[in-house]
């Protein structure tokens, strides 16, 4: 009795499993196509000559049109924009991680008057849309002489990354064991030393997650530079540069160079992502778990 019912269930389970499997795979494959096709289309188009692109947007490449890439690199200055982005990011990411973890450590591990207030102040910043601050921020930077400068952009990136960084790292520092910290103090390590040599290494997994989150957020930032970094086209960061490139190539009618520029901006990021996909996925989704 029990035998037959088990068999029956096994058989029907197999069947529905099989049907669902085909069903599942077909939908999943459709979305693979949806997600990847636009990117593949751009990459393929980047090695086709402009005349082909207009007459036949979907054709396959007949040769390899290097001109697109040289145009994008020299005329459109993709190299320069990338360098600008790298310089800004070197400053802003270091600053964010350093200041963010310092504040988070103190807030997580020390009790003092005002601790809760300061924590709320930082975390509350996540509630406000950046657009609300945009106009006054423009004039604040202007008053400090930081408008249209890299330093200004760096400081602003740091300031607007702090709320989530601190929120995330406070939670992380709280999970670390207190015993190690006490042992370090007993051995005569100063607070600063305990922080840099003991707590920072212990917090590495959390620092990596939030570091990836901040890296991509700041690398891809569009709104802040669009408003605060408009002095000279030479100073544009990469996302800005690509937007400008689209306008420019629209006038010149050379879409090949635009596709080449987008490809050059896109492929390194994708390669890095595929290499570190697990960390990147967990780092980015940390952003939604508030």
């Amino acid at each position: 009795m029990s035998d037959t019912s088990e068999q029956k269930q096994g058989a029907s389970g197999d069947r529905t499993g099989g049907v669902l499997n085909v069903f599942a795979h077909s939908f999943l494959v459709v979305w693979v196509f949806m997600a990847a096709a636009p990117l593949v289309w751009v990459v393929i188009s980047s090695i086709r000559p402009h005349s082909d692109l207009v007459s036949e947007p979907f054709g396959l490449p007949t040769g390899f049109e290097w001109d697109n890439f040289t145009n994008a690199w020299t005329n459109a200055d993709i190299g320069r924009y990338t360098l600008n982005s790298l310089i800004v990011l070197a400053g802003s990411l270091t600053g964010t991680m350093l200041l963010g973890s310092m504040a988070a450590y103190v807030l997580a591990r020390f009790s003092f008057r005002g601790n809760r207030v300061i924590h709320t102040l930082f975390v509350g910043g996540m509630m406000f849309p950046v657009f609300l601050a945009l106009v006054p921020l423009f004039f604040i930077l202007n008053n400090f002489g930081l408008l249209n400068t890299r330093q200004g952009l760096i400081v602003v990136y740091i300031a607007y990354s702090l709320p989530f960084t601190i929120f995330f790292l406070v939670a992380f520092f709280r999970t670390l064991p207190t015993g190690v910290q006490e042992a370090a103090t007993l051995d005569g390590a100063s607070h600063t030393r305990t922080f840099f040599q003991i707590m920072m290494p212990m917090a590495r997994p959390g620092l990596i997650s939030i570091g990836i989150f901040n890296f991509l957020g700041q690398w891809n930032q569009f709104v802040l530079p669009r408003v605060l970094n408009v002095g000279s086209p030479d100073d544009a960061v990469l996302p800005q540069g690509l937007a400008a490139l689209m306008v420019q190539q629209g006038y010149e009618g050379d879409w090949g160079a635009l596709y080449a520029g987008v490809t050059m901006a896109m492929l390194p990021v994708l390669v890095v992502y595929v290499t570190f996909q697990r960390q990147v996925q967990s780092g980015l989704t940390a952003g939604a778990v508030r």
Binding site: F222, Q240, L245, V262
Partner: peptide, 27 residues
Amino acid sequence: VYFFPQVLSIAIVAVIWARIYSPRSGA
């Protein structure tokens, strides 16, 4: 693969789709 668009700058996404929606040479 699904995660691809998420790691790209929203500016890159916008440029790509502006080209896709383009009336004459768009995909």
